[in-house]
Write a protein that binds this DNA or RNA. Structure first.
Length: 678
DNA sequence: CAAGTCACTTAGAAGCCGAATC
DNA sequence: GATTCGGCTTCTAAGTGACTTG
């Protein structure tokens, strides 16, 4: 543990160094040859300090000064105080003299710009993600428990006892019997093929037709089981809860450098049937059980290396501090690698998140130039350049995803911008009174449908016609383009720029602009929150974040409506009472009746407020029917915009972010002031 | 430069749980 | 006390994009 302390002291020395670097920035004055480079350097200096600031702020749960139960040591005292941010005058030397004449607004803006950062230089040298990493390894899925004797499986109407392996796979199917999946041809075919692989040779020769398999008894058994779980006594439930907490405490955390950090997914995915989204060619395939022998452990050389379960070995233990994962294994459906990584509240995720928004903010400065550029490129002599420019226009205007190529037959047929095919768009020279309308209809990520009719500029329209000439519906729309070409181009336009940055940028800028537009200073808090949700919704619509309308939607809407009706009646009653109290007071003219009037007045007001709140809620819910706000909130909206908005209007942050979200955005909550501008 | 590998972010659905309601 | 409902958490699939290899 003393080593932890050592390394953290080193860290502090590093911080000192950075400060010195900052102090020596006068040098820049003399070098005016390469302005861009110089500017980058300035920004780099800013980074390290900001990052330290960040690291100090954003890593709950913090380690206390005393070693805790787990023997984790705290970081030294100094670490627990945030480093001061660089003051403006620290680098005033190389600012042009003009600065004095600038008005305060400009100065403020400049200050914000200075806080922006270049990211190639991190707290650690080139690509190093941590210095110390210790964890307990993953938690494996519980072993299979064979069914009790009385739970039967029937084949062709006759009882059949399955071998344990075959039975396990059968239960996976039985558990999904109510799901639409099990009616799908591909699912059944894939399942049956993989199931047969697990059978003994006798089973294989008997069970030749899935339709003759009867899983209903098994299915009923599982339903009864889950029912029984619900009916458990408080004590039993408590016991399970405690066991889960123990597991979390033991395996749910790791130490990365000087912080104890929450792990996101410390449990290994249990075996089961693969559930792809949309029309997935591999749905129903058997996801095999992961064993310690499949597992690669990643941790520090000098940490306590997690022990594999008794009688087992890890596939490999490595010490790669250029990556952030703790555990990995290769999954058998797509052959891709799965990882165990840290929670979004961790330093390493938070920093990255912050970095993402800083890149998007940098795009703000370049975006006008880039837009002019692609407009020019629509006229280019080169087909490749035109396609690139039109694709970029879509990515920018419609917030489409980049659209990497995918291997045919391995995944559901979905596309993004660069992989759009001719069949995915229709061109309307005129539609509903608008000129040059492009009708998009395709399946995007997760097989979510993107449907949109967009009027575009004439040049774009003409280009699209050109791109579609002599092509079949299944041909690529942008046949000279892929994401790699596009991203290379973007990289030239701005360092760190890729297609996905446009989504982040447009989402965040839309939120900021919508908040400005929709917030009415005179509104009360619930109404302001409605405005926030509407701004959020505008972004979700832009990014096409949809959800299946909840099954209970209609019902819950009706419930809410009846609540509103009841409240309205209550209000009418209260108003009547107020009226009669007023009349009464007019006649009697005594103190007591005056007081009654006052209290009735208050009651009316209170009910009015409650009614309004309910009505707002109803509007909000109705508008949210098929739109999911969560994804944009979590992944696209610079949290500092929301924090600033809350501060500006005195809205408690809890109304916008729940506990988990506050943990994830701790850095932003600490950092952003009321006047933050994206 | 095409294909493959790897790391990491983004995504909606399912499951769970506690508060509200009957 | 039982049931319902909605929000939060968990789960893991499905993307992006950097990098490597042939």
């Amino acid at each position: 543990c003393s080593e932890h302390k050592d390394s953290s002291e080193k860290k502090h020395k590093d911080k000192e160094k950075t400060k010195h670097k900052d102090g020596s920035s006068e040098k820049h004055k003399d070098k005016h040859k390469d302005k861009d480079k110089e500017k980058r350097k300035e920004e780099k200096v800013g980074v390290s300090l900001e990052l330290c600031f960040f690291a100090c702020f954003c890593s709950p749960p913090r380690i206390k000064d005393e070693p805790d139960d787990d023997g984790f040591y705290a970081s030294p005292k100094e670490d627990s105080k945030p480093l001061k941010r660089p003051r403006e005058d620290d680098d005033a030397d190389y600012k042009p003299k003009k600065i004095k004449t600038e008005d305060i607004k400009k100065a403020k803006k400049r200050k914000q710009e200075e806080e922006e950062v270049m990211w190639e230089e991190e707290r650690y040298p080139e690509g190093i993600k941590w210095k110390f990493l210790e964890h307990k390894g993953p938690v494996f899925a519980p072993p299979y428990e064979p069914l009790p004797e009385n739970v039967k499986f029937y084949y062709d109407g006759k009882v059949m006892k399955l071998s344990t392996k075959a039975e396990e796979v059968a239960t996976f199917f039985a558990k999904m019997l109510d799901h639409e999946y099990t009616t799908k041809e591909i699912f059944r075919k894939n399942f049956f093929k993989d199931w047969r692989k697990e059978m003994t040779s006798e089973e294989k020769s008997t069970i030749t037709n899935l339709s003759k398999c009867d899983f209903t008894h098994m299915s009923q058994y599982f339903k009864a089981q889950s029912e029984a779980r619900k009916q458990m006594s408080k004590e039993e439930k408590q016991k399970i809860k405690e066991e889960n907490e123990r597991l979390l405490k033991e395996y749910g955390y790791c130490v990365m450098d000087n912080h104890k950090e929450r792990i996101a997914n410390f449990k290994i995915e249990p075996p089961g049937l693969f559930r792809g989204r949309g029309n997935h060619p591999k749905m129903g395939m058997l996801k095999r059980r992961i064993m310690p022998e499949d597992i690669i452990i990643n941790c520090s050389k000098d940490s306590k290396i997690p022990a594999p379960p008794p009688g087992h070995k890890w596939k490999e233990v490595r010490h790669d501090n250029k990556v952030t994962w703790l555990v990995s294994w290769t999954e058998n459906i797509q052959g891709s690698i799965k990882y165990i990584m840290l929670n979004p509240s961790s330093r390493i995720k938070g920093e990255k998140d912050w970095q993402k928004y800083e890149t998007a903010r940098r795009l703000k400065k370049f975006v006008d130039k880039i837009r002019n550029q692609y407009r020019e490129d629509w006229k280019s002599k080169e087909m490749k350049v035109r396609q690139r420019a039109v694709a970029l226009y879509f990515i920018d205007k419609l917030a489409l995803r980049a659209g990497n190529e995918k291997e045919e037959g391995e995944t559901a047929d979905t596309v993004g911008c660069c992989s759009l095919r001719v069949e995915h768009i229709k061109l309307h020279p005129e539609l509903d009174g608008q000129e040059y309308v492009v009708e998009f209809d395709f399946l995007g990520k997760d097989s979510i449908r993107y449907y949109n009719k967009v009027p575009v500029e004439k040049r774009v329209f003409k280009n699209l016609q050109l791109f579609m000439e002599n092509k079949q519906p299944e041909d690529d729309l942008f046949d000279r383009l892929n994401t790699s070409i596009l991203n290379k181009h973007l990289q030239d336009l701005m360092e760190g720029l890729t297609a996905k940055v446009f989504r982040t940028y447009n989402a965040s800028i839309t939120l900021q602009q919508q908040l400005k537009e929709l917030t009415n200073p005179d509104d009360n808090i619930p109404a302001k929150i409605l405005s926030y949700n509407r701004a959020n919704r505008a972004v979700a619509i832009l990014c096409n974040h949809q959800r299946a309308p909840p099954k209970t939607f209609e019902k819950s809407m009706m419930n809410l409506q009846s609540k509103i009706d009841a409240k309205k009646e209550q209000l009418a009653d209260a108003r009547r009472e107020l009226k009669s109290a007023k009349a009464d007071a007019k006649v009697r003219r005594d103190e007591k009746s005056k007081k009654t009037v006052e209290s009735k007045k208050k009651a009316v007001q209170r009910i009015e407020e409650q009614l309004m709140k309910l009505e707002v809620q109803a509007t909000d819910r109705e508008e949210n029917k098929q739109i999911a706000l969560g994804t944009s909130k979590l992944n696209y909206l610079d949290p500092r915009i929301s924090v600033a908005w809350c501060k500006k209007w005195g809205i408690p942050i809890e109304k916008i972010y729940n506990k988990t979200q506050r943990e994830k955005f701790a850095w932003a909550i600490d950092m952003a002031e009321e006047d933050y501008e994206f």
